[in-house]
Simulated assay, not measured.
Amino acid sequence: MSDPQPDHTLLTPGPTPIHPAALRALTRPMLGHMDPEVFALNSEIQAGLRTMYGAAEGTFTALLAGTGSLGMEAGFANLVEPGDEVLVCTNGSFGARMAEMAGRYGAQVRLVTAPLGQPIDPADVAAQLDGVKMVAVVHGETSTGVLNPVPQIAELMRGSGALLTVDAVTTAGMEPFDMAGWGVDYAYTGAQKCLSAPPGLAPVAISERAFARFHARRTPTPLWYCDFEGLRDYWDRHSYHHTVPVNLHYALHAALHAALDEGLLTRQARAAQIGQAVQAALAPLGFTPFVVNPAHRLPTVLALRLPTGFDDAGVRAALRTRHISVTGGLGPTAGQIWRLGLMGETARPAPYLTLLGALEELLGERGLTTRFLDALEPALA
């Protein structure tokens, strides 16, 4: 028998530590995917997802058996046909991924861009809406820690006839999301992000407008596995489509209801409090926010520019020997920033106390944990 593995402190922008209730749910005995108990569980999941997304009553919600990238791809596969004009907002790696996927499904892709670390300008979106069938935007750009102004973009799109697809991977489940009020037609996230469930599921929400566009398709959906009507056959009509990962459903159900019981506003405040305390602790070392305007910072992924001369790879490797995982920059920001997760179970004092204690030893700096706790004290009180 192998030795027990030491506890690992996971501070990445996904996956996040599994919620204890979700971990317990993973170990329950297996049931068949067509079992009445599983269908009852799925109905509760659907209702919980409508609450999480702020969706209208009756909005179709489901879990795709894949990660958030499958959620992204399913939207383009079902709602885009060759030749459709699709406007993609790109200010980081995941907006660029959206553009690539839309192009692979035959879309004529237009881009609205912003520099790394800055949000999309809604006026730039409004200026390019003529003839567009869909606008796609990442709510929280994980690669740079930017929060894009989805409500403002949605408001300027009203009456355009274009569908709005939103990547909510680092927002849904950790702060309020108003699908119905904003006018979002397709939203998706990943189970392993804000909900702190195991990877392998993509919770989605699909508006009636999106279903109308789907039913008006001239050609069948090229992605059979996530065909919207096939999903509805299983989730709503309880007929066989494919085998779902039952125990992952149980785990997500537990994590989802833990999030809703805690309250999305409470979770939003928790992420903000931890993030501000981490910034206060690291600022004297020369760490500065990558996103300059506080209003544009993504609350769930703290992107910090590294101090001049900081040994990014060396420090992260040394932390890894202590079973602490921190993520650096992605693509153009590699070696320039750290991206610290503040989603789900990561947005707690304990893992960041572990990180800051290790940095005190590795860097020969004192006071990091004290500054963190001092900044957190009003919230804890």
Rank of each mutant, 00 (worst) to 15 (best):
D3M: 11
H8G: 00
T9K: 02
L11C: 08
I18V: 15
H19I: 02
A22T: 01
H33R: 06
F39I: 01
S43M: 00
A47L: 10
G48S: 15
G48K: 11
T51G: 00
G54Y: 11
T67W: 00
G71V: 10
A74E: 04
N78T: 03
V80F: 02
G92M: 06
M98G: 10
A99Q: 01
Y105K: 01
V109F: 00
R110P: 00
L111P: 03
G117A: 13
D121R: 15
P122G: 10
L129K: 06
V135S: 08
A136M: 07
V138R: 01
G140L: 06
E141T: 01
V150T: 01
R158E: 12
T170Q: 12
G173E: 09
G181W: 08
W182H: 10
W182M: 11
A187T: 13
A187R: 06
Q192Y: 13
C194P: 02
P198I: 06
R213S: 10
R218L: 14
P220Y: 12
L223D: 12
E229G: 04
Y234I: 03
Y234T: 07
D236R: 05
S239V: 07
L248F: 05
Y250A: 13
A258L: 03
A258Y: 04
G263P: 07
L265H: 13
R267G: 01
A271K: 01
Q276R: 14
A277Q: 10
V278G: 11
A280Y: 07
P284E: 08
L285F: 05
L285E: 08
H296R: 09
L302C: 11
L304R: 04
D312Y: 03
H323R: 14
V326S: 08
G331R: 12
A334S: 14
R339S: 12
G341K: 03
R348S: 10
R366K: 14
A375P: 07
